[in-house]
Design a protein around this nucleic acid. Structure first.
Lengths: 149, 149
DNA sequence: AAAAATAGCTTGCGTAACACAAGTTATCAA
DNA sequence: TTGATAACTTGTGTTACGCAAGCTATTTTT
């Protein structure tokens, strides 16, 4: 994805997609949500080439999505963590996962089930809401916002 | 993104990302939600090269995300529409847009504001929920699902 | 203390996907 | 019937991706 290609589009979606970079970003964030937080942890989980992973991790740190620090008990090891900005990707990530569950894997064939650690209750399907009610996709209005010159 | 690279991952997220193809998919779906539904409509809205757009539209139709038909009053023109599978991408798309609003554009500088056509009420931030309560990103548990051999 | 293993990262190189520009076909408007 | 429009397609670079191998600094093993 060329970095400057989408910049002209007056849309936070394009900017978000541009900053996320490529699909690996989402998979790395998913791994972090699962507790995987080291270079070789990502590598063995994802099968990503080390040069790609390295570059991607640098970019994610630069963009403020991840933070990085040395492991206290092992000087070789770096530990990565989600920043608040990175954690804020969770809703879109989970919505995408649920889409794959429903439309690709199929109901009842989900490879992974998401739940609340505290209560054990399964996550509900993510929905679009306004005024306390669901909004169907066809009923969404795109209005000019204050960020447009 | 090579089509078969992520197939081995037992995760609906990887499958979803693989099927979505590239970022253009999301931008095309966004345009359709906005009412843009023709080839040159996408092209002038997105600045995408015609060969890329053509290939992407074919793939999206093949994958059942879009449908395509001839315009009744203009035999040259094709009209594209979201299928239910395509509409189901809206939550992840909007979550991503909201992420861009908050973390890239910044609050108060949103290029676009989303609302409910029927009530005019602005869309709420998309949240992760279980048992009728919000779930913070750090409290999500990944459990083995039935789709794993 | 020397050798081996591990963690994170870099380099070299081939391939494949992307993207610009130009051309093609079918339909419609003047 | 000439010109414009819509939706592609083709040709040709260029870029970015990805495998394999190598590198350096720690840590563990002997």
């Amino acid at each position: 994805m060329s970095r400057n290609r989408l910049d002209h589009l007056p849309c936070s979606l394009a900017r978000a997609l541009d900053e996320a970079g490529d699909w690996w970003t989402f998979l790395i964030v998913r791994d972090l949500l699962r507790g995987i937080n080291s270079f070789d942890g990502f590598q063995s989980s994802l099968g990503i080439a080390s040069n790609i992973l390295s570059r991607r991790l640098v970019k994610l740190c630069d963009d403020g999505i991840l933070s990085k620090r040395k492991d206290a008990s092992d000087g070789r090891r770096m530990r990565y963590a989600l920043t608040p900005k990175g954690e804020a990707l969770a809703p879109s990530l989970i919505a995408l996962m649920q889409w794959g569950d429903e439309w690709i894997s199929g109901r009842g064939r989900e490879p992974v089930i998401l739940a609340d650690k505290r209560t054990g209750g399964q996550l509900e399907p993510i929905r679009i809401r306004a005024d306390g009610a669901d909004v169907p996709a066809g009923e969404i209005e795109f209005r000019r916002g204050p960020g447009l010159a």
